[in-house]
């Protein structure tokens, strides 16, 4: 793994927000490499810029300056339309509040990202069913999100994230809304995705248990990145 180029390369990244005339710096000269198959946890106090960094890596926000390359593609230079196309096949999102579409069934939610691919209806069905099998919810595929527990909904969200076989998975507080047991199930599943399927996960978390699962923990404080070894916790 060491000889391979990092899957995510971030160089001199700056990001600030504007509130009226005020400029609030959020990320300050971030440089970071993430290798393929790595499970990285981003930690830090609220307002430290973790989610902003995650959003920038996922291509849903624009940096002020600096570059981000994912799998060799410099996403900071892509247009909005190109970014949307890129996200469809390269990024899987796992949100704190699952963000499932309530009017679609578990199956339809999982199938959603595949609608942006060239797969046929039959292929989409096969892929979505397989993803639901991976998260152990094949028998619940016709259920609506409202008919599932929080943990089950997050598993559906994970299935939706992995179904297009993305380059990276970004998770923003994936256990933040779950009880202890469900949170552990989700973390086990994420670990399985890394070890069993070779996925690269970048996770923002406040939860030390979640962070423990990660290979590397990066700590953000006032927009500056510090690296801690795993035994720091």
């Amino acid at each position: 793994m060491g000889s391979k180029a990092p899957i995510v390369e971030i160089r001199n990244l700056y990001k600030s927000y504007h509130r009226g005339n005020q400029i609030l710096p959020v990320l300050n000269d971030i440089t970071l490499d993430i290798d393929e198959g790595e499970f990285l946890a981003l930690m830090g106090p609220s307002g430290s810029g973790k989610t902003t960094l995650l959003n920038l890596i996922a291509g849903i926000d624009k940096a002020d300056s600096g570059t981000i390359k994912v799998s060799g593609v410099e996403i900071t230079s892509l247009s909005e339309t190109e970014l949307a196309l890129w996200r469809a096949t390269n990024v899987g999102f796992i949100f704190q509040f699952y963000n499932l579409i309530p009017v679609l069934t578990a199956f339809e939610n999982v199938e959603l990202p595949l609608l942006l691919t060239s797969l046929s209806r039959k292929e989409r069905r096969e892929h979505a069913e397989m993803a639901l099998r991976v998260v152990n919810l094949y028998d619940r595929m016709e259920h609506y999100p409202g008919q599932l527990s929080g943990g089950q909904q997050q598993r559906v969200a994970i299935a939706r994230a992995v179904v297009p076989d993305p380059t990276i998975l970004v998770a923003d507080e994936p256990t933040g809304d779950l009880d202890r047991v469900s949170a552990m199930e989700i973390l086990d599943l994420m670990e399985r995705l890394v070890h069993g399927f070779g996925k690269t996960i970048i996770m923002v978390t406040h939860d030390p248990r979640a962070a423990k699962m990660a290979h590397i923990i990066k700590h953000l404080d006032k927009g500056v990145l510090n690296v801690y070894p795993q035994n720091h916790l």
Partner: peptide, 14 residues
């Protein structure tokens, strides 16, 4: 609003 954000994040265009 959240659903719109999710759909856009997944890759659906404006």
């Amino acid at each position: 609003t959240g659903e719109i954000g999710t759909l856009r994040a997944i890759g659906f265009q404006r």
